[in-house]
């Protein structure tokens, strides 16, 4: 009898997920100008993080990833975005509890601690969070870990140990080849995130969700930037409707003097 030995190759994917004000909500600046109102506002998974979740789930479905983990940092309520992630197909989740909002550097340091413990081969996250629009965390994490960095990716192919990515850059598309482990940040065009079906939402309630207090990680999370005030943007004064093309061109030439 011929014996076949299977060597099981482990490939863990960790996805970082941020809970943000839903992208359809018209946000309101707080009356004391200390920030933006987030109480009693619809919150959701940061949109490009959904692309990261989708990509991780696809890698598992393709048999490339063996385990997918979602992680979020924040208050207890962040459980909801982790449940959403698991309803989309992520296997299990970690919530790092923090009462304070963290700067990208502190987020990356927190992720690094968890990564040292979980030892994933690939870390995925959205290219930016649509609340503070910083676009930093993935790059910082990659540098802290000294792992390859692939930002704003719109395609990903993993073959053997090779990682092929396309990055959306100002001039067009840049293609890079790198290796695992790596940190990749996802563009909205990477894929189309699936909707969680009701049975999967039910199943997600039973998937493991581990909570960790951020204090136990022993990292410096003190903010280094102080927000002095948050204000409404200047509003544009209402314009006029023109009746036809002739009037439009005349106004652009004689009134606005831009052509």
């Amino acid at each position: 009898m011929k014996l076949v030995y299977f060597i099981e190759i482990q490939m863990k994917v960790l996805v970082a997920v941020k809970r943000v004000v839903d992208y359809k909500v018209q946000i309101r600046v707080k009356s004391d100008n200390s920030g933006v109102e987030t109480q009693n506002v619809k919150m959701s998974v940061n949109p490009p993080d959904e692309n990261a979740i989708e990509e991780a789930v696809k890698l598992k479905e393709q048999g490339i990833a063996t385990e997918t983990i979602a992680i979020s940092i924040g208050e207890d309520k962040c459980q909801d975005v982790l449940r959403t992630s698991m309803a989309m197909g992520i296997d299990r989740s970690i919530l790092v509890k923090s009462q304070n909002s963290l700067e990208p550097l502190a987020v990356a340091k927190t992720l690094k601690k968890i990564i040292e413990k979980e030892k994933p081969d690939l870390v995925l996250m959205g290219k930016q969070a649509i609340d503070d629009d910083s676009n930093q965390t993935g790059q910082i994490l990659s540098a802290l870990l000294n792992w390859p960095q692939g930002c704003f990716i719109s395609s990903l192919k993993i073959e053997d140990k090779k990682v092929l990515i396309s990055r959306e850059v100002d001039e067009g598309i840049e293609k890079l080849e790198t290796s695992l482990p790596a940190v990749l940040t996802c563009d909205l065009r990477l894929n189309t995130p699936r909707f969680a079906s009701l049975p999967n939402i039910m199943k997600a309630k039973k998937k493991p969700l581990e909570a960790i207090e951020i204090e136990t990680l022993d990292i410096d999370i003190e903010p280094k930037i102080k927000t002095l005030k948050v204000i409404d943007p200047p509003t544009r004064k209402a314009g006029v409707m023109v009746k036809d093309v002739k009037e439009l061109v005349q106004k652009l030439k004689n009134e606005a003097k831009v052509i």
Binding site: K224, T227, V230, P233
Partner: peptide, 12 residues
Amino acid sequence: IYAGNAISHVQT
């Protein structure tokens, strides 16, 4: 911040 729907003044 928030796609330009709020403007933040920060000190570093």
